[in-house]
Structure formats: C-alpha cells, structure tokens
C-alpha cells in the first residue's frame, strides 16, 4: 500500500521564508492541529539554545503544564477516533465531554482552544492568574476518576479487547527501519521518550514513568496512550505546587548574522517533532519540520498487510496520524 500525497499540501515552510523570527509562530502552529503548543515550543527552544537566552523558571513550569494539558487533549481525541471506528457511541460522547474540560482550561490560559499562539522566544506571552491554578486544581481532582472510566470502556471491555488484540501488529525491525517514534514505538516495548532521555525543559524535576507495551498491536497502542494520560496528570499535579513567583520572559540580544542548521526536538503527542532552522539578518532563510506522523503513515502501510478490509479504518485510527502534519 502506497500513500498518495499532495491533497492537503499548504506549503507552510515556503510561505514563512523571509518573515521576521518573532512573527513565525502563528503560521507554524497550524501544522499540528491536535497539539499546537508543541510546535511553538520546539521553535522557541531551538532559537533559545542558539542565542543562549535563559528562560525564567516560572515560564518553564507554565510551558510544561500547558504542553501536558495539550498531550491529554490529543490522546483523548485519539480515543474518540478509535471509538468512532469501533462503532461505539457512548465512549465517544464520554471522550468528547472530558476533552472539552481540558480545552476550556487551555482557553482560559491562552485565549484560544486549539491554536494558542502563547510561547515566545525567551518565555511566554502573558502570566497565568491565580484563578487559573484554582480551576486546574478543581478539575484535576475529578479527572483521575474520569480517566479510569475511559480505561474501563476500552481495556476492560471483553468485546473491544478481543477485537483489538493481535490486530495490525508491527514488527520491531520494521519500526526501527522506518524510524517511527512516540507511543507507537513504545507499544513495541522500546522505552524511548525525549522527555526522559533529553530533559529539554525541566522534566528532570518530576517523577513519571514511561509506559511501554510488549507486542505492538492495536490494543498496546491504546493502552500506552491511556497510561500516558495518567502520567501527564501526575506531572501537572506535581508542577502545580512547585510553580515559583517571578518574571515570565527575558529579552535577550538576538544576533543578526547568518546562522545555519539550528536543530531541536521535543516529544509531541504523536512522537518526536524536530525542527531545523536557518536564519539570516533576523529573518527566516529556511525552516523544515520533521513530523512523526509521516513515518507513522508508512508504518501503518506495513502493519496493514494481511488484515481484513473492514479493519483498515480501525488500524488507521490506532496509529493516531495527524494528516496536516504529513502534508505540510
């Protein structure tokens, strides 16, 4: 099976050539529609590392909280798509209700539900109020129970487990050849997470596990994502009580000389999101985004071989492919 490209191609990487480096963020956060904040984050981290701008600790904490919130919302969207492919209506509505609470929190913090435009080079756009943290505490209190409900729907339901078990198995050698990353790789039993391995923000201050599967079928992919939601909740609840007072942004000196191939990567909900930037005279000369969904699409076309025709939609949903990111 060969994917056919070009139906959603917008050419973002070409449009932003020649734009000043501060004005790029609203263009690139449309690349990943389910967690836009991770695209903003990888762009800002790349330039901060190069210019050696030190981000205030309060801003770092707020970035972590928001990126974990968007990870939760993206994984719940995955469960929605899976429930839709399975033909289950009740879990679908439960998932959409839970996702709405998280999107409301993101909206209170940033002003937009899906495209926040919040992270800046050297910090964040605006400070979060005390009301936001109170609301976050209130919602997190009941959220563990709701995630447990979703776990009962998907992993303790005999019909769903029998359907997803041994469906769309991906072999480990194929996966490493195709360089896939994220939850799809972790479902194979490989413990690879940039939050643990690279510590790009202040992730080394929190205790969290990296959930892994063992066989690499659709059930494992579903299980890994549900457990990641629980881990994200624990990261947020640890971060809530540690957030210090202070500044939220530092204005560093930005060189206007030519510089090439600045690279950085973060762990977005679909996998490893990398970005390669070249800047000249304060404007973007070339920018290329390496999204995880592109590799996951080819992994899907490997995993689908030998399965029934009616199961293809289900296997496609289990890989969690963000189509905007494949055709940029």
């Amino acid at each position: 099976m060969n994917p056919d490209f070009g139906y959603l191609r917008t050419g973002v990487e070409k449009i932003i050539e020649g734009i000043e480096i501060d004005n790029v963020i609203p263009f690139i956060n449309r690349v990943d529609n389910s967690s836009a904040i991770s695209v903003e984050l990888v762009y800002c981290i790349a330039l901060e590392n190069y210019f050696k701008i030190e981000v205030p600790i309060r801003a770092k904490f707020i970035r972590v909280i928001l990126s974990e919130l968007s990870r939760i919302s993206s994984h719940i969207l995955f469960l929605t798509k899976l429930a839709n492919a399975l033909g289950m209506n009740m879990p679908l509505h439960y998932c959409l209700r839970e996702r709405e609470e998280i999107l409301h929190l993101i909206e209170v913090a940033t002003g937009s539900r899906l495209t926040p435009n919040f992270v800046r080079i050297g910090g964040i756009k605006s400070d979060l109020s005390k009301q936001f943290f109170d609301k976050l505490k209130e919602i997190l209190k009941g959220f563990r129970k709701k995630v447990h409900e979703l776990r009962v729907f998907f992993l303790e339901n005999e019909l769903v487990v029998n359907k997803l078990n041994n469906l769309g198995v991906l072999v480990k050698e194929d996966a490493i050849k195709l360089a896939i990353s994220g939850p799809n790789l972790r479902a194979l039993g490989v413990s690879q997470d940039i939050r643990k391995n690279d510590n790009y923000e202040i992730y080394d201050e929190f205790n969290f596990k990296v959930p892994i599967g063992d066989r690499g079928d659709s059930l494992d992919r579903c299980m890994v994502r549900i457990e990641e939601i629980e881990q994200s909740i624990s990261i947020i609840s640890q971060a809530l009580y540690k957030v210090p007072e202070g500044k939220i942004r530092t204005y560093g000196e930005v060189n206007t000389q030519l510089m090439e191939n600045i690279y950085s990567h973060v762990e977005c909900p679909h996998g490893e999101l990398g970005m390669n930037i070249s800047v000249s005279e304060g404007r973007i000369a070339k920018l290329s985004i390496k999204g995880p969904s592109y590799n996951n699409l080819f992994a899907f076309s490997k995993a689908v071989i030998g399965e029934k025709l009616e199961d293809i939609e289900l296997i496609l949903a289990s890989f969690d492919i963000c189509v905007c990111e494949v055709d940029k």
Binding site: R97, R113, L114, V323
Partner: peptide, 16 residues
C-alpha cells in the same frame, strides 16, 4: 473537513 476546523465540528457533535 480537514485540520483544526474539523476538530471543532467534531466538538459540536459532542454532549457539551
């Protein structure tokens, strides 16, 4: 639909 508008149309289908 495609992209982020598709997600918002999905949200209108939900219980909220």
């Amino acid at each position: 639909s495609s992209g982020c508008c598709g997600d918002e149309i999905l949200a209108t289908y939900g219980p909220v």
